[in-house]
Nucleic acid binder design. Structure first.
Lengths: 349, 349
DNA sequence: CGCTTTATTGTTAGCGCTAACATTTTTGCG
DNA sequence: CGCAAAAATGTTAGCGCTAACAATAAAGCG
């Protein structure tokens, strides 16, 4: 039985990891030549490269990036902080980053802050200790400590999803205020006058705050009904959208349109309208924000704001790579815009 | 102007990163005491800890985990590979992992394989070179090269989302086959006889393959209509669900129920039924899989299979931590089960 | 052909941290 | 108070890799 245990151990015994020196010995060259073959292949002769790759294959060598990063003071990782992984809108951004960064041999470190500035600070510190080549944040609102951490580090930063005058470093996004304003303008143009707005929680969320602001400004600009009773705040779930809608129509039957800060809320509202026999858009119009798949799939399809989710991630990644390569401009701010998508949940007129 | 440039540079000039030695000097202790204060606080006296933390704060020291990991041969990162970040069902798993791992001071390295075994292999190699403390994979189907890489590394692995006899190491999931079988059994119990099945693409996707298998076995077991014409395959988008549904009812009007391998497809079908005036469940029943939010929010709500998405991630993380601490059992396999959620999209009877 | 230029490979010295052992200080107790 | 045990702190020697410089080999040229 003792023997059995030993056998077991033995079967699971793993070789100590292969080191660069082991590969070098097998290939009959020095360690640096292995390193160069992997990282700077054009400085190694064709013949040597071949021998080295064979030795790498044979030994199953996996370079230790901790050692490599320490020695070269350069890692191929980029940290990304998004508010939540649960919302698929950020998934598109992450996909955009992944596509661009993987092609350049970079890995993604991902974390979500849960919309908490304190959590964001913790994550930034945790990321910085991994010495990433760059960091991508969501939004432009950060705690003082976060700002200090980032300013003391000298890595490139991209903030995303907003527009702002004083970015920490680089910025890729769109104006949430303008987008929200444009939607209200569109609705006003359709003849709606009492337009309710269901905001996402604005606390620590500049995107949500700007969308609310855009709504308020447009309401004034177009002389629409301005009334605190037309405004609600709800965290994005379908169910909350249903509730907010039910609440709005119960409180004020004269509302003729409801604009939601995101499509999930809007879809929830649409489902609630259907359950209550409220006709959309005849009795009341519904508009959303984000243009997620669901917006186009429901009946009637949701009028919404399309934002370049994937492109924001891809462009952020490109900027980061440019800056890492020493080519990027000083403080690039890229506005990728938005687009009003008119569909059946609002009348056209 | 030249001066201006200089000034500019100067303003952006960052201090070289603070090293442990700098903190040690300021605190009047040796470097190892700084290290211990951070990593093994109970081996440092209260008084010294206080002095050290003050020095850390004052200098803004951020430990270099590359160096720490290299020296200690231990990192606090865990790699996770999911098929896609776009599907929110995996988001819940990631959230489960994040919650458990962050509490233990671990960081997540996340990547998506796009359902490609080759991409998975690349990612595993890339992750291994970061020397993570553990790896979490989705599914139990992996390329030979992936298996070899993992077997030669000695880090703990958790496969997820499936059940299997021969896991690489640890396994947390549920039986996709049993779940699918149970749903068909439920539908059969409701009196449905011609049950169509819309599968996810089974190529390189054991979860999808098992769901299809469960359906086929149940069809035989309950003597239901077995016909290739009842089966479709579609990648999960709402639109594909609509199309598959349209295609099914056009090809075979006698179908009395349609079971979809995921809720996104099922919801797409439901929307299509509504557009076509097909009554659900009176004319045809619809059932899904995953129990996403949308499933409960549509009208009629979708009958579906609830799977412990969050819990799979959390349990995988827990197992990893146990194993890292040297406590986990040899080859734990955790079946977290599933649950049939009966709702209005199928008649009850 | 001799000498410069360029391409290729090697040697040395850390990167910033922590394991392991060594030393010093404190504590406990008869 | 003296001494062993325990607690606290320090010293030394790498972890595995790559930058920087050094040495050698190959190529170019008048």
């Amino acid at each position: 039985m003792n023997e059995d245990v030993t056998r077991r151990r033995s079967a699971r015994q793993k070789h100590a990891a292969v080191r660069i020196e082991d590969v070098a010995r097998l290939a009959g060259v020095s360690a640096i030549t292995i390193s160069r073959t992997i990282n700077k292949p054009d400085t190694v002769s064709e013949a040597t490269r071949k021998i080295v790759w064979e030795a790498i294959e044979e030994t199953g060598y996996i370079p230790n990036q901790l050692a490599g990063g320490l020695a070269s003071r350069r890692t191929r990782t980029v940290g990304v902080i998004i508010p939540t992984v649960v919302n698929s809108i950020f998934a598109d951004k992450v996909q955009g980053m992944t596509d661009v960064l993987h092609a350049a041999g970079y890995q993604l470190l991902l974390a979500n802050s849960g919309y908490s500035p304190e959590a964001e600070t913790e994550l930034v510190a945790a990321f910085l200790s991994q010495r990433p080549s760059g960091l991508v944040l969501t939004g432009v609102t950060h705690s003082d400590r976060t700002r200090r951490l980032l300013q003391n580090s000298d890595i490139p930063i991209v903030e995303t999803w907003s527009m702002d005058d004083g970015p920490l470093d680089m910025l890729v996004g769109f104006s949430n205020r303008d987008a929200s304003h444009a939607m209200v303008a569109y609705l006003a143009g359709c003849g709606y006058r009492r337009i309710a707005f269901v905001s996402a929680p604005v606390l620590n969320n500049d995107r949500a705050a700007e969308r609310l602001r855009g709504y308020l400004e447009a309401v004034d600009e177009f002389g629409l009904a301005r009334d605190q009773g037309l405004i609600r705040e709800a965290f994005f779930t379908l169910d909350n959208g249903s509730k907010a809608f039910a609440d709005l129509v119960a409180a004020d039957p004269s509302i003729d349109a409801a604009f939601f800060a995101n499509d999930v809320l809007a879809a929830g509202a649409l489902f609630e309208a259907e359950r209550r026999g409220i006709r959309v858009p005849d009795d009341i119009a519904i508009a959303g924000f984000d243009d997620i798949d669901l917006a186009g799939a429901v009946t009637p399809a949701l009028t919404t704001v399309r934002i370049p989710r994937y492109e924001i991630g891809a462009e952020a990644a490109r900027l980061l790579l440019e800056r890492i390569a020493g080519r990027a401009p000083d403080r690039p701010v890229v506005d990728l815009g938005f687009e009003i998508v008119a569909r059946g949940s609002t009348r056209t007129r």
